[in-house]
């Protein structure tokens, strides 16, 4: 009985020590990435290449999803608001939900599953096929050469993608409510402009997406770099990237929202 309890405690202790160790390792990795990011800017074409892979290649999914999310918001919002005779407020609803929440959050979730998982798999495979080791042997620092540009590429792409998501979403809402249902166009835009505040809503949305960009890219790169060099290792790391970064996005979103929109 006692023996069993001791063994159980030991398992718990082992888990805790392991996760703390991993957290420390991740922090060290993250700070090294930041310290060595001079290369990413001095040789900016390396970063440009990564913006292409993370940003440009995510464009289609971001634009299509943004359009649909905006259209659904328009439909649902209209459905509810017209009961209270204020269908014109649908513009406000669509714009506020997109700029404050859905734009940054959904774009980041899509980014995590589209670009984040690809990043993890790529780094994991580079490690499994000893490409990272080969670089180290050629006296080229893999964190500066491989990780840094990917990190900054992701951090630069994320807010741009989120902004496109929101803008396309507002357009989708406009298409459904104004063009299709026939809500008054002037009221749609003016109510929206009255309610959406540049600093309070749009700047805060951009700040959120930058934070999400940092979180998703850092998680994806760390998982890839830390992946065991086997097929299961890489696939497990890819799954963990999507799960961890989705949870991180939602958790961070709550914290940021609590700070940004407190009482205002």
């Amino acid at each position: 009985m006692v023996e069993r309890a001791v063994r159980g405690l030991r398992v718990v202790g082992h888990r805790v020590v392991n996760s703390v160790w991993r957290l420390g390792y991740a922090s060290r990795f993250f700070s090294l990435t930041l310290l060595k990011s001079a290369t990413s800017f001095r040789r900016f074409h390396l970063t440009i290449k990564e913006i292409y892979f993370t940003g440009v290649l995510s464009l289609i999914i971001i634009i299509v999803s943004g359009l649909f999310v905006g259209m659904v918001l328009g439909l649902q919002g209209y459905e509810t608001l017209q009961k209270y005779g204020s269908a014109e407020a649908v513009g406000t609803l669509v714009a506020l939900s997109l700029t404050r929440e859905l734009g940054p959050v959904v774009a980041a979730l899509l980014f995590a599953s589209r670009a984040g998982s690809a990043m993890t798999a790529e780094i994991g495979l580079m490690k499994a096929t000893e490409q990272i080791a080969a670089m180290e042997m050629m006296a080229v620092d893999p964190i500066a050469r491989v990780i840094g540009p990917r990190f900054w590429g992701g951090v630069i792409s994320m807010p741009l993608l989120a902004a496109m998501f929101s803008a396309v979403g507002v357009f989708g809402g406009y298409l459904i409510t104004v063009v299709l249902i026939g809500v008054d166009e002037g009221a749609f835009w003016s109510q929206m402009q009255n309610a959406v505040d540049f600093r309070q809503d749009i700047v805060n949305g951009v700040i959120k997406s930058v934070v999400f960009g940092v979180a998703v890219t850092a998680i994806a790169l760390f998982e890839g770099y830390d992946a065991p060099p086997t097929a299961e290792g890489v696939s497990g790391a890819t799954t963990r990237t999507v799960v961890t970064s989705s949870l991180a996005i939602l958790g961070l979103d709550f914290v940021l929202t609590a700070f940004m929109f407190r009482g205002a």
Binding site: E122, L125, M126, T129, E130, Q131, A133, A134, M137, M138, A139, V140, R145
Partner: peptide
């Protein structure tokens, strides 16, 4: 150093692989 399975950079052409250390250093 020659690695067990070559460890070529799979996202670069043969030329860029060989040019890699030259360009870096």
């Amino acid at each position: 150093m020659l690695f067990q399975f070559g460890a070529l950079f799979t996202d670069m052409s043969v030329f860029d692989n060989v040019a890699f250390p030259l360009r870096e250093h």
